[in-house]
Amino acid sequence: MRASERAYVTLLDEIQTGALPPGTVLAEVEQSTRLGVSRTPLREALRRLASDGLVAQASPRVTVVAGIDVDDIRDLFEVRRALEAEAARLAALRADRRVFTSLAREFTTIDTAEADAYYALIARFDAGVDATVDNPYLAAALRSVRTHLVRVRRMARDNPLRLSASAREHELIARAIGTGDPELAVHATHVHLHNALTTILEALTEDPS
Rank of each mutant, 00 (worst) to 15 (best):
S59I: 08
P60K: 04
P60L: 00
P60F: 00
R61D: 15
R61W: 14
R61I: 09
V62G: 03
V62E: 15
T63Y: 06
V64M: 11
G67E: 10
I68Q: 00
D69F: 13
D69N: 15
D69S: 10
V70N: 00
D71L: 15
D71M: 05
D71N: 15
D72L: 08
R74V: 06
D75V: 01
D75M: 02
D75P: 00
L76D: 14
L76A: 13
F77E: 10
V79F: 03
R80T: 03
R81C: 04
A85K: 09
E86K: 01
A87P: 02
R89L: 08
L90W: 02
L90D: 08
L90K: 01
L90A: 07
A92V: 02
L93I: 06
R94S: 15
D96H: 09
R98A: 07
V99C: 00
V99W: 11
F100I: 03
F100R: 06
S102H: 07
S102V: 01
S102R: 12
A104T: 03
A104I: 02
A104C: 00
A104E: 10
E106Y: 02
T109C: 03
D111Q: 03
T112I: 07
A113V: 02
A113Q: 12
A113L: 09
E114Q: 10
E114L: 05
A115Q: 05
D116A: 11
A117C: 03
Y118P: 02
Y118R: 04
Y119C: 03
A120T: 13
L121S: 03
A123C: 06
A123K: 04
A123D: 15
R124E: 15
F125H: 07
F125Y: 14
F125R: 04
A127I: 01
G128R: 05
G128H: 10
V129G: 01
V129L: 00
D130A: 08
D130Q: 09
D130L: 04
A131S: 12
T132F: 04
P136N: 14
P136G: 14
P136I: 08
Y137M: 08
A139C: 06
A139Q: 08
A139R: 08
A140I: 01
A141D: 14
A141N: 14
L142G: 00
R143E: 14
R143T: 09
S144R: 14
S144Q: 10
V145H: 12
R146L: 13
R146Q: 11
T147N: 04
H148C: 06
V150Q: 08
R151I: 02
R151M: 11
V152F: 04
V152A: 06
V152C: 09
R153F: 10
R153I: 00
M155L: 15
M155D: 07
M155A: 14
A156H: 08
R157Y: 13
D158P: 07
D158A: 13
D158Y: 10
N159E: 15
P160F: 11
L161P: 00
L161K: 12
R162D: 08
R162E: 08
L163P: 12
A167F: 07
R168F: 14
